[in-house]
Design a protein around this nucleic acid. Sequence first.
DNA 1: GACAATTGCGCAATGC
DNA 2: TGCATTGCGCAATTGT
Lengths: 191, 191
Amino acid sequence: MSVSDSPASSICMFALHHQSSSSPAGALNPDPSSMSGQMSQMDTGVYGQPMVFPKTPDGRSMEQMMGFEPYSSCLTPSSSERAAQQNQQDFSQFLLPPPASTLRPMGQKRGPSKDSVEYRLRRERNNIAVRKSRDKARRRIQLTQQRALQLQDENHNLQLHIQRLSHEVDSLRHYLSQRHLQAREQDTAGD
Amino acid sequence: MSVSDSPASSICMFALHHQSSSSPAGALNPDPSSMSGQMSQMDTGVYGQPMVFPKTPDGRSMEQMMGFEPYSSCLTPSSSERAAQQNQQDFSQFLLPPPASTLRPMGQKRGPSKDSVEYRLRRERNNIAVRKSRDKARRRIQLTQQRALQLQDENHNLQLHIQRLSHEVDSLRHYLSQRHLQAREQDTAGD
DNA sequence: GACAATTGCGCAATGC
DNA sequence: TGCATTGCGCAATTGT
């Protein structure tokens, strides 16, 4: 079981590049050294930037993508498997009218969402949310660590305080016991 | 040297996923709860599945992939750039038909590395390392939080202890002062 | 139901 | 050469 159905997912990914192609040898990396060490993947959103989806502030065009339909063949695993079965069993769908529910015509803009502007907007928003959430988590972790250190320090100080107080109590008790002895001596003497 | 030249590459990746869009109500997630929560992204593909190497000790299939050429366009940053230059400079032979920029015939197995077994092995090992590292980080964070709570509790107890000791010191001092007064009275009286 | 926040995951760059 | 870290985007899930 385990592996059987699970995985298999093969998702094809297409990196499209825009510029690269046309870009002359010239200035492709505008600023390699910039602090951004992250542009490995793709969009690297803008973060703040109000602009709708202005995209790639850093220069990379996120391209709209829009067009593109290449991956018709690139099915995915499970879905493909599933689909295959269905096709074999009841692929009558293809014959029938538009099955509405099934595979998308791959025409171009399947209404739902995948590569369309709508999709990209969602993705970009989520990417921003993710970055935000992670920054938050990072800060939280950092605060926790700081708090732990602080508490540790505070703890140490409290222990020192306790030590002092304990000594003081001891001293006072000792002093009192001495007084008691003295008093008793006087009593006996005077007796 | 080193990595400097890297980047810029904007790689857009499209994960296409299969089902998601059309996903019928049916049984799409075969097993949402199962431990395998991962095939969301891409690779993990089914691809071949000859199981060349043992792979995934942890049970996740790393799959082979081999075929596949989809991402002819999916070049990697540095490599692609480099290749492009060479092609342009040295092998202009290709004439001009195809948009020169298209580098890489997409034949099938470009020697270097990208989709090859070698690459997949590296990726899979890294994925394992990443999971390991993240588990470690998670545990560390958890421990830090626990420690903070523990220290906080300890702190509270220490403060209570201090309170008690302080009261004790006060009491003893008060008692002593009383004794002093009594002693003085006796002195004056006896005097 | 839409949308933000979280979370697990794989990728790639980089650290060691 | 190889594992360890880390930032990032994707997608699924959860919270509002």
